[in-house]
């Protein structure tokens, strides 16, 4: 457990985290490995885990009938995967597939939500870390929508 705590707090998402909060979080965490092609989660499944990638590469995909899935984004070492565990109805909106051999921490979402609810200091700390990531991803998605490399004038 000590090793998991040390590794978990070594993840960039938890940089400079109060060790006392880390000790609380580690009770919800586990180590995970995904083979290339393996899904971390599938669309519409319960969003019951929050993933922090340690190594590898994960593609967020949207399945479209009759054509190859559309890759919306990729996430690698040091990044987090999944936000749907944060907001009701706690179901995934996309598929997340390991593109390469991937190691990650999984944090049980119900466990984490309960701890955030019980300890607002912890909850606020998590919000301060999650919100910049979510805003950054929203801005990146907007840039992708702009299709800036498309033909001028079309």
């Amino acid at each position: 457990m000590e090793t998991l705590e040390r590794l978990l707090l070594g993840h960039p998402f938890f940089t400079d985290l109060d060790p006392a909060i880390g000790r609380i979080l580690v009770g919800c965490a586990r180590n995970l490995r995904f083979a290339p092609g393996e899904f971390l989660f599938r669309e519409n499944e319960p969003a019951n885990e929050f993933f922090l990638v340690r190594e590898g590469n994960v593609a967020l995909e949207l399945h479209v009938p009759g054509r190859p899935p559309l890759v919306i984004g990729t996430l690698g070492a040091g990044e987090i995967v999944g936000a749907s565990w944060l907001v009701p109805p706690y179901r995934w909106n996309f598929d997340a597939r390991a593109v390469a051999a991937t190691r990650a921490f999984g944090i049980d979402a119900a466990c984490l939500r309960d701890k955030c609810e019980a300890d607002h200091h912890l909850g606020y700390e998590m919000m301060k870390r999650l919100l910049p990531v979510m805003v950054g991803r929203m801005q990146a998605a907007r840039q992708q929508l702009l299709d800036v490399y498309g033909h001028p004038g079309t």
Binding site: A59, P68, Q144
Partner: peptide, 19 residues
């Protein structure tokens, strides 16, 4: 290298340049 959009045959990054 990153691309804005891809299908799963692309094994590189998908996302924007600032990322």
């Amino acid at each position: 290298i990153t691309v804005d959009h891809a299908d799963p045959s692309w094994h590189g990054r998908v996302g924007v340049v600032p990322g």
